[in-house]
C-alpha cells in the first residue's frame, strides 16, 4: 500500500510535468491537455476517505504551486491565493470517493473518465468565477464563448485521455499486489 501511495504521488508529479510539456491547443481556443485531474480522480477513488483527503490536499498544493503566479506584493489583491485548490480538490475527492466500488470493483473506467471531465469543468468554472469575483469587474461574470470553449475543450480532452491514466495506474496497482481492491467491501 505504501509503495502504491508513493507511486500515485509520483504519477501526480509526472502529470504536472507533462502538463507543462504539452503546449496549449491553439485550434481549441488555447485549451490544454491535462492528465493531472485524471490522476487525482484515480487517487481519490482508490484510497479510503482519509487517504483521499490527504491525496486531495497534496493535489491542491501541487496544482497551485505549478499554475498560480505568486506575486510578493501585498497590494495585489487580484490573484488567487495558493491554497484555494486544496479546498476544491478536497470537496471533489469527498464526492468522487463515493464511486470507488463502481470504478474499482466493477472496473468502470468510463465512470473514471466522466468524473475526470466533470472535475475539470467544475475546477475551471470555479476558478474563472473566483477570478471574476476577486476583480469584481462585471456582474454577472461574462462567461464568453472563448472562455466556455476553452474550459469545455480542456474537459473533453481530459475525458478522452483519462482511460490511458486509468489503465496505467491500474497496472501499477496490480504490480504493487493490488492491495487496495482486496480491502474493499463486497470484494
Amino acid at each position: 500500500m505504501i509503495i502504491f501511495s508513493f507511486a500515485t504521488i509520483i504519477a501526480l508529479l509526472i502529470a504536472a510535468g507533462v502538463g507543462l510539456m504539452l503546449p496549449p491547443l491553439d485550434f481549441a481556443s488555447g485549451a490544454r491537455l491535462l492528465l493531472f485531474h485524471a490522476v487525482f480522480v484515480y487517487g481519490a477513488v482508490v484510497f479510503r476517505f482519509g487517504g483521499a483527503m490527504t491525496f486531495a490536499a497534496l493535489s491542491g498544493v501541487i496544482w497551485d504551486l505549478v499554475n498560480l503566479p505568486i506575486l510578493d506584493d501585498p497590494q495585489s489583491t487580484e490573484l488567487l491565493r495558493p491554497g484555494w485548490s486544496v479546498i476544491f480538490f478536497g470537496c471533489m475527492a469527498a464526492v468522487v470517493n463515493g464511486l470507488r466500488v463502481h470504478v474499482l470493483i466493477e472496473g468502470r473506467w468510463d465512470l473514471h473518465a466522466l468524473a475526470t471531465g466533470a472535475v475539470i469543468l467544475f475546477h475551471f468554472t470555479a476558478e474563472f468565477l473566483y477570478i471574476t469575483l476577486l476583480r469584481s469587474s462585471s456582474t454577472p461574470p461574462e462567461l464568453s464563448f472563448t472562455v466556455a470553449s476553452k474550459i469545455g475543450a480542456t474537459a473533453l480532452f481530459a475525458l478522452l485521455t483519462a482511460p490511458l491514466v486509468y489503465f496505467s495506474l491500474s497496472g501499477v496497482e496490480s504490480l504493487c499486489g493490488s492491495p487496495v481492491r482486496e480491502r474493499l467491501p463486497f470484494h
Binding site: L20, A57, G60, V66, V86
Partner: peptide, 28 residues
C-alpha cells in the same frame, strides 16, 4: 483537517510560497 490545512497554506506569506514554488519548478 483538510480545511485546516488549506487555511494554513492560504496564510503562508508570498515569500514562503514562492520558495516552495521555486523548489517544485526546480524538479519540473
Amino acid at each position: 483537517f483538510l480545511l485546516g490545512f488549506a487555511a494554513m497554506f492560504l496564510n503562508f506569506s508570498p515569500r514562503t510560497t514562492q520558495r516552495l514554488q521555486a523548489g517544485l519548478f526546480q524538479i519540473l
